[in-house]
């Protein structure tokens, strides 16, 4: 047996750097992917206390009322038409027809000439329309979210169609002035009433 120093063969570690590099890049990529996304909503100002407010007078043809009960059934009353039960998948088209009112249907919101920024000029739009969304305290959040998603989706689709017709490209590709003009053409008017408590609590 040899005494003293024994030579240990060196390990070839030249590929270690490459392996660690790959892991490093993997972690870098996966962490940047974890961004939060969601539906952006603006809440109305807080209700003023001690002030009895009359609800604003809105003509019936200008309102669309979406009601969800505790059994998660959706009812929609569009303009002057009768209220009826609707499915989630019908809601987007109903909302689009209601907001746009392309054929000046007397049952759908009134069209008013409004001065809009260039390139639109004076246009007939349904400036007084209101979409009212009433939920029950026992409605599921999932359905609430899906309906909000459809309502905002309807506005987004209308804006996108308008942008494509006017500028030749989608709403997302428009610059800020164009987006502002399109937004004023189809102004988002969704109002949420305080939920009713018919159901269990």
């Amino acid at each position: 047996m040899a005494k003293g120093k024994r030579k240990v063969p060196g390990l070839n570690g030249s590929s270690m750097a490459d392996i660690s590099f790959i892991m490093l890049i993997f972690f870098l990529v996966t962490t940047s992917m974890d961004t939060d996304s969601g539906l952006h909503v603006r809440l109305p100002n807080p209700p003023e206390e001690n002030v009895e407010q009359d609800p604003p007078k809105v003509k019936q043809r200008n309102t669309m009322v979406v009601t969800v009960n505790m059994y998660n059934q959706i009812m929609a009353k569009v303009g002057n038409s009768e209220a009826k039960e609707v499915g989630l998948n019908e809601l987007r088209q109903l909302t689009k027809d209601f907001v746009a009112n392309r054929d000046n249907d007397p049952k759908l919101p009134e069209l008013h000439p409004v001065e809009l920024p260039a390139p639109f000029g004076v246009q007939n739009i349904t400036k007084n329309h209101v979409i009212s969304f009433v939920t029950d305290r026992a409605t599921s959040y999932d359905l609430y979210f899906q309906i909000e998603n459809e309502l905002y989706g309807a506005y987004n689709e209308l804006r996108d169609e308008l942008a494509r017709k006017t500028f030749g490209y989608g709403y997302k590709e428009c610059n800020e002035d164009q987006q502002l003009a399109v937004r004023q053409y189809y102004k988002c008017m969704i109002s949420e009433a305080e939920p009713k408590n018919y159901g269990n609590q």
Partner: peptide, 11 residues
């Protein structure tokens, strides 16, 4: 007066 809210969701 926190009026700008986001309902977090996945696509």
């Amino acid at each position: 007066w926190a009026l700008s809210i986001v309902y977090s969701a996945t696509s």
